[in-house]
Write a protein that binds this DNA or RNA. Sequence first.
DNA 1: ACGAAACGTTGACTTCAGTCAGAGAATGAA
DNA 2: TTCATTCTCTGACTGAAGTCAACGTTTCGT
Lengths: 303, 303
Amino acid sequence: MNPNSILQVRSFNRLVAERIGALDDRFLQANRPMNESRLLWEIGANGEELRVLRDRLDIDSGYLTRVLQGLERQGLIKIRTSPADRRVRRATLTQSGLKERLKLDKRSDDLAIDILETLTERQRRLLLSAMEQVERLIQASMVHFDIEDPGHVDAEWCFRHYFKELNARFENGFNPEQSISADADELVPPKGLLLVVRLRGEAIGCGALKFHGKQFAEVKRMWIIERMRGLGIARRLLRALEECAAEAGVRQLRLETNQTLHEAIALYKSYGFSEVKAFNAEPYAHHWFQKPVETRRGSPART
Amino acid sequence: MNPNSILQVRSFNRLVAERIGALDDRFLQANRPMNESRLLWEIGANGEELRVLRDRLDIDSGYLTRVLQGLERQGLIKIRTSPADRRVRRATLTQSGLKERLKLDKRSDDLAIDILETLTERQRRLLLSAMEQVERLIQASMVHFDIEDPGHVDAEWCFRHYFKELNARFENGFNPEQSISADADELVPPKGLLLVVRLRGEAIGCGALKFHGKQFAEVKRMWIIERMRGLGIARRLLRALEECAAEAGVRQLRLETNQTLHEAIALYKSYGFSEVKAFNAEPYAHHWFQKPVETRRGSPART
DNA sequence: ACGAAACGTTGACTTCAGTCAGAGAATGAA
DNA sequence: TTCATTCTCTGACTGAAGTCAACGTTTCGT
């Protein structure tokens, strides 16, 4: 890695940490313990279950209880047992709790305004677009892949969006019924596997393998959410799938794709797939590709 | 302020705080209290005086003492009385202290590498240049102006660089002796004043006024360090000087400048100065400008 | 030479953050 | 029905962060 690049990133980190130091300060300056602020924030206008809060803020349950009791004593929240599951408790903001939360909100706005207001209109535009750029690229570095059951809610969410997109892009629409199957049971080891792409716990894409013995595996269900495209995530997903195939001892990857999916075709070609003649009767396909499985050094299977 | 701009900044802040959140983690993960880490870092390879540390980290002096004693007990630092001023104490890293500091250093590098390594070369270039852009523009919003004595070390530092630059840019060099005076005593109230531009406590520019009764004030010593140009800082400095003039009841600003200083001339014109015929005999000047002093609403005199 | 100011140290706090073990109530699965 | 699991709360901690006042030493300005 280029040392100057590292220095640039570090210098950026330092500055931003200092300036946005509001990292904590957004909450800290509020003249109330940070965890109280974080909780007021996370409870939100509609209330939230304690177990969700505990999970989101990664707080010890005993500790959470006490901080919440503090907030309740201050009259900022109410805690009630959930009617649906009486083990579960749910916190909601009171009127004054909502007001406190608005103050936090305002503090965030003020910080943003403070940064923007000294700049000229042109500088402001430059800053915002540079920020967006940084944001997207940093997000790309936060993406990770998890092996997941196809029945998982995130997996189903991805499939729905994937089908919807195919339906919109294909010349004559897309109906999964008519396509070669990749059913839930085919995407679970040992018959296959499904990777869900996540960013901060939120699903943003998927990709699957359907094994055919050691001879070859089909790549299926490659999809990345629109707003995260162009960041090389699909390529990393492909590499992760190839690693999985390699681990399973599979010798070849195969896939077919539709002519309207230009980006995908470009990706497969540049990744090392070669176009071959049709090896199946997938009605929606115009191109068939294959590639020998390689184990790439230095590429972590799942990150 | 445009609400979408605010949202973009907030979203950026959130992400970066989370990702760089290593802000603390850089120090925290180190499995040692954060302030210990921060101190190891700030003491640096050459040691540092306690009063400087206290100032930089904004730590209570009693607290500082105790944390440092902790570090000394761990054999990471030594604290000695400064020979120059025996009130002052100075902390220096021991061998193992240096090693610990290297670990922190490595942690920073790792974070940077972690962000960069998943990206393609092209994305990496994009990210770095966007980061630089963000950094510069955010810095612009952190700049502030202080009234300072011309004898102050920062002021002298600025003057030296200012003269050096004039000497390099003027056709026949520049010798302050031959120029119309703006001596130290002329830049102190009530005869005049000096503003030093600072970024995080570090001087990056200056600008001065030399009063001639209520009738007019001369703008002198306008200079911004090269790397911070193009960010509208000089314009804000000019406005700050104008505010000072307004407060002093002065009716007009005047200045003269050399033809090689294109940016300055462009700034003065666009700021509202009009070129007039020579009102003094400054040997280095080619252009003379003046402008009536206005009080601009909503513009903080010194930020 | 004297008083004010600067610099550091100590003691005696308070408040936050975070951990761990144990126990009770509700729920779900066999 | 029983038993394991989930969810929450309590008690009893440790350790870090941060504040305040008092005091001693050294230096500086006059």
